[in-house]
Write a protein that binds this DNA or RNA. Structure first.
Lengths: 226, 226
DNA sequence: TATTTATGATAGTAATACTATTACATTTGC
DNA sequence: GCAAATGTAATAGTATTACTATCATAAATA
């Protein structure tokens, strides 16, 4: 798995960037340090000027890669879900039982991520933190419908659809497979946020993970009727 | 219920505003037209200058009521959850069975809201739309911990805690009551968003509401073990 | 070696997000 | 009825943001 990841390139919709940041040194520097700065000061306070200062590059050079910081965030989320999808396909490929497939997939979308050392310019653990804190901002905009048409959220929706397929195999009678999965994928990010900031309204903490909560939930909802 | 609402004033933490907008004509105009403009152009594109132009008032006059637009959004969300809490307390007061209480409360937090005519300067249906589109932005900020300490999110957390109490009464053995409710309250807003923008990953539409999905979910999870 | 490509440096604009000051109008308290 | 307090408008000004444009130069490549 780790080695496989070293040999593939995560695909991101070309309309998201002006110039592929993975193709040059400066591009990879932009990716790497954007994540670090966004983690430090948050997406809202992040600017291309600050990034330029940090990497010793000109603001205008950064605009050659991304139109604006919104697109950069969309790039990160697209990369993230593409990476999750890749891991999901491989991790579930040789599992026969749909319920076991689903539990494996669930683990991937709900767990806390650790850095994958195959991509030195992109720290996945940091990316996961950014996704938890900022992902909803990619689509909670007035431009969401246009950007959706452009395919900016395709991979995210495909990850959900894969899991929906598993649910349908497990229980074809269950009436809300799509809402179940979309609320789990979004909800897992939210539970991670809550355990760090609003501890009083979550059961998740160092000992109990969002994975545990959702694994239990899935089993209660989809367990075969007796 | 409707008459009761006419006679009470929704309480909002005083630290959120500079001057209580419900106390003056200009303040109420700010509330009313902010909602309209935010609905039209979204929170991100909303500015106090645009609001000032719309209501024929000076930008600086608006700053006498709210420090910045973030605080205005926090005000709206605080008002919203306070209003939901009020309705919840009354609607569940004379229900004996905890499960029925919970289902009633669930309905309140998941349904689409219609305007309550007792507050002419605040259109609740519009407020509900703003909350669906913008609520998460109130806490997905770098300042969330400080603002949480100031009590900006108290009412939201209290609404969740009330429902958690009901879950505990229904099934004291259930291990994740807080995560269940916090994910439902957040998730319901998300499902409303999905049915308007990402239809392929939700089962909710004109015929099936988020309320239906979550009512079914609650019953599957908390139904007495046979 | 010529030429494309990438980056850097500089400059500039319009909008945003405020703050401060002053003048005046209106309400309210006594 | 008058003084004091409060509310609003107008104006000005600042720092930052979010870009765009141009030109020079360095590096890669054909």
């Amino acid at each position: 798995m780790d080695q496989l990841l070293a040999n593939i390139k995560i695909q991101v919709n070309e309309k998201i960037y002006v110039k592929d940041p993975e193709s040059t040194t400066l591009g990879r520097k932009i990716i790497k340090h954007s994540l670090i700065i966004m983690d430090e000061i948050g997406f809202d306070n992040f600017t291309f000027k600050k990034l330029g200062e940090r990497i010793g590059s000109n603001e205008s050079s950064i605009y050659r890669y991304f139109e604006n910081k919104h697109k950069l965030l969309v790039y990160f989320s697209s990369w993230y879900w593409s990476w999750i999808e890749y891991k999901m396909v491989f991790a579930t490929a040789n599992i026969a039982a749909p319920l076991d497939q689903l539990l494996k997939a669930l683990e991937l979308v709900t767990e806390k991520i650790e850095d994958d050392l195959n991509t030195p310019y992109l720290n996945e653990a940091l990316l996961n933190k950014i996704i938890i804190a900022e992902f909803t901002k990619t689509f909670l905009t007035k431009e969401v419908d246009e950007e959706n048409k452009e395919g900016f959220f395709l991979i995210y929706k495909r990850v959900i659809s894969r899991m929906v397929g598993m649910v349908v195999m497990i229980d074809p009678e269950y009436p809300f497979p799509k809402s179940l999965i979309s609320s789990i994928v979004e909800g897992a990010l939210h539970q991670h946020f809550l355990k760090d900031h609003f501890k009083t309204i979550t059961d998740c903490n160092e000992n109990t993970s969002p994975t545990a909560y959702y694994t239990d939930l899935i089993q209660r909802i989809l367990s075969p009727k007796s």
